[in-house]
Simulated scan of single mutants.
Amino acid sequence: MRTLKYAILGLLAICLAAVALANRDLVEVQAMPDVVAGILGISASITLPLFVVILAGVAVGVLIGFLWEWLREHKHRVEMRQRKKEVNRLEAEMSRMREEKHEGQDEVLALLEERQAGR
Protein backbone atom coordinates (compact mmCIF):
# COMPACT_ATOMS: atom_id res chain seq x y z
CA MET A 1 0.00 0.00 0.00
CA ARG A 2 2.86 2.35 0.83
CA THR A 3 4.44 1.62 -2.56
CA LEU A 4 1.20 2.51 -4.33
CA LYS A 5 1.04 5.78 -2.38
CA TYR A 6 4.60 6.71 -3.37
CA ALA A 7 3.95 5.72 -6.98
CA ILE A 8 0.90 8.00 -7.17
CA LEU A 9 2.79 10.87 -5.50
CA GLY A 10 5.68 10.38 -7.92
CA LEU A 11 3.31 10.42 -10.90
CA LEU A 12 1.70 13.60 -9.57
CA ALA A 13 5.14 15.21 -9.17
CA ILE A 14 6.06 14.31 -12.75
CA CYS A 15 2.78 15.79 -14.02
CA LEU A 16 3.31 19.01 -12.05
CA ALA A 17 6.87 19.30 -13.36
CA ALA A 18 5.62 18.80 -16.93
CA VAL A 19 2.99 21.53 -16.46
CA ALA A 20 5.61 23.85 -14.97
CA LEU A 21 8.03 23.27 -17.86
CA ALA A 22 5.31 23.76 -20.48
CA ASN A 23 4.11 27.02 -18.87
CA ARG A 24 7.32 28.90 -18.08
CA ASP A 25 6.33 32.06 -19.97
CA LEU A 26 5.92 35.19 -17.90
CA VAL A 27 2.44 36.66 -17.55
CA GLU A 28 1.27 39.84 -15.92
CA VAL A 29 -1.31 39.35 -13.18
CA GLN A 30 -3.35 42.46 -12.38
CA ALA A 31 -5.36 42.99 -9.21
CA MET A 32 -7.99 45.10 -10.98
CA PRO A 33 -9.03 46.03 -14.54
CA ASP A 34 -7.20 48.86 -16.33
CA VAL A 35 -10.25 51.15 -16.19
CA VAL A 36 -10.59 50.86 -12.40
CA ALA A 37 -6.82 51.15 -11.92
CA GLY A 38 -6.86 54.37 -14.02
CA ILE A 39 -9.68 55.88 -11.96
CA LEU A 40 -8.05 55.02 -8.62
CA GLY A 41 -4.55 55.80 -9.82
CA ILE A 42 -3.30 52.45 -8.54
CA SER A 43 -1.74 49.87 -10.78
CA ALA A 44 -1.34 46.68 -8.78
CA SER A 45 0.22 44.10 -11.06
CA ILE A 46 2.96 41.51 -10.85
CA THR A 47 4.78 39.44 -13.45
CA LEU A 48 5.00 35.70 -12.70
CA PRO A 49 5.56 32.48 -14.61
CA LEU A 50 2.25 31.01 -15.73
CA PHE A 51 2.74 27.73 -13.82
CA VAL A 52 3.01 29.71 -10.56
CA VAL A 53 -0.33 31.37 -11.32
CA ILE A 54 -1.94 28.00 -12.14
CA LEU A 55 -0.61 26.24 -9.04
CA ALA A 56 -1.48 29.19 -6.79
CA GLY A 57 -5.03 29.13 -8.15
CA VAL A 58 -5.32 25.41 -7.42
CA ALA A 59 -3.90 25.87 -3.91
CA VAL A 60 -6.29 28.74 -3.13
CA GLY A 61 -9.21 26.66 -4.42
CA VAL A 62 -8.26 23.71 -2.23
CA LEU A 63 -7.90 25.96 0.83
CA ILE A 64 -11.29 27.55 0.21
CA GLY A 65 -12.81 24.07 -0.17
CA PHE A 66 -11.28 22.88 3.11
CA LEU A 67 -12.49 26.00 4.92
CA TRP A 68 -15.98 25.64 3.46
CA GLU A 69 -16.18 21.98 4.51
CA TRP A 70 -14.86 22.74 8.00
CA LEU A 71 -17.54 25.41 8.47
CA ARG A 72 -20.23 23.11 7.06
CA GLU A 73 -19.35 20.33 9.50
CA HIS A 74 -19.50 22.62 12.56
CA LYS A 75 -22.95 21.39 13.57
CA HIS A 76 -21.76 17.77 13.47
CA ARG A 77 -18.77 18.54 15.69
CA VAL A 78 -21.00 20.34 18.21
CA GLU A 79 -23.43 17.40 18.30
CA MET A 80 -20.55 14.93 18.74
CA ARG A 81 -19.17 16.98 21.64
CA GLN A 82 -22.60 17.04 23.33
CA ARG A 83 -23.07 13.29 22.90
CA LYS A 84 -19.61 12.62 24.30
CA LYS A 85 -20.47 14.66 27.42
CA GLU A 86 -23.72 12.72 27.78
CA VAL A 87 -21.94 9.36 27.46
CA ASN A 88 -19.36 10.39 30.06
CA ARG A 89 -22.12 11.52 32.41
CA LEU A 90 -24.04 8.26 31.98
CA GLU A 91 -20.91 6.15 32.48
CA ALA A 92 -20.13 8.01 35.71
CA GLU A 93 -23.71 7.53 36.91
CA MET A 94 -23.61 3.83 36.06
CA SER A 95 -20.33 3.41 37.93
CA ARG A 96 -21.76 5.22 40.95
CA MET A 97 -24.88 3.04 40.91
CA ARG A 98 -22.78 -0.15 40.76
CA GLU A 99 -20.76 0.99 43.76
CA GLU A 100 -23.92 1.78 45.71
CA LYS A 101 -25.48 -1.58 44.85
CA HIS A 102 -22.50 -3.60 46.06
CA GLU A 103 -21.52 -1.38 48.98
CA GLY A 104 -20.43 -3.42 51.99
CA GLN A 105 -20.21 -6.71 50.04
CA ASP A 106 -17.17 -8.76 49.31
CA GLU A 107 -15.64 -7.89 45.90
CA VAL A 108 -15.68 -11.49 44.69
CA LEU A 109 -19.32 -11.98 45.62
CA ALA A 110 -20.24 -8.69 43.93
CA LEU A 111 -18.48 -9.78 40.71
CA LEU A 112 -20.24 -13.16 40.77
CA GLU A 113 -23.60 -11.50 41.33
CA GLU A 114 -23.01 -9.13 38.40
CA ARG A 115 -22.04 -12.02 36.15
CA GLN A 116 -25.21 -13.96 37.06
CA ALA A 117 -27.35 -10.87 36.50
CA GLY A 118 -25.80 -10.40 33.06
CA ARG A 119 -26.88 -13.83 31.82
Rank of each mutant, 00 (worst) to 15 (best):
T3Q: 11
T3S: 10
L4Q: 11
K5E: 12
Y6S: 15
Y6Q: 15
A7K: 13
A7F: 12
I8V: 15
L9A: 07
L9V: 01
G10W: 00
L12G: 02
L12Y: 07
L12E: 12
A13G: 06
A13H: 04
I14N: 02
C15W: 11
C15T: 11
C15L: 15
A17E: 14
A17N: 07
V19H: 01
V19L: 12
V19T: 08
A20V: 05
A22V: 03
A22E: 04
N23R: 05
N23D: 06
R24T: 07
D25V: 06
E28C: 11
E28M: 09
V29Y: 06
V29Q: 07
V29G: 05
V29C: 08
Q30M: 05
Q30D: 04
A31I: 00
A31D: 02
A31F: 04
A31S: 03
A31W: 03
M32S: 11
P33Q: 02
P33N: 09
D34M: 02
D34K: 05
D34R: 05
V35A: 11
V36T: 14
V36L: 11
A37C: 01
I39D: 04
L40T: 14
L40K: 02
G41P: 01
G41V: 06
I42R: 04
I42Y: 05
I42S: 02
S43E: 15
A44Q: 08
A44W: 10
A44E: 12
S45F: 07
S45I: 02
S45E: 14
I46S: 09
I46T: 08
T47K: 10
L48Y: 08
P49K: 07
P49Q: 15
L50S: 05
L50I: 01
L50D: 06
F51C: 09
F51E: 11
F51R: 02
V52G: 00
V52W: 02
V52H: 06
V53S: 03
I54K: 01
L55F: 13
L55E: 05
A56H: 03
V58R: 01
A59H: 03
V60C: 05
L63D: 07
I64Q: 03
G65H: 01
G65Y: 12
G65C: 03
G65A: 08
F66M: 12
F66R: 08
F66P: 00
L67F: 10
W68N: 08
W68L: 13
E69G: 00
E69F: 09
W70C: 08
W70Y: 15
W70N: 10
W70V: 08
L71G: 03
L71C: 12
L71Q: 13
R72H: 14
R72S: 11
E73Y: 05
E73M: 12
H74N: 04
H74I: 06
H74C: 00
K75N: 07
H76Q: 14
H76S: 12
R77W: 13
E79A: 14
M80R: 15
R81S: 13
Q82R: 14
R83A: 00
R83F: 00
K84I: 11
K84N: 12
K85R: 14
E86L: 14
V87G: 00
R89D: 12
L90K: 10
L90D: 11
L90T: 02
A92G: 03
E93R: 09
R96W: 07
M97E: 13
R98A: 06
E99K: 15
E100A: 11
E100I: 06
K101H: 10
K101P: 01
K101G: 00
E103I: 02
E103Q: 13
G104Q: 01
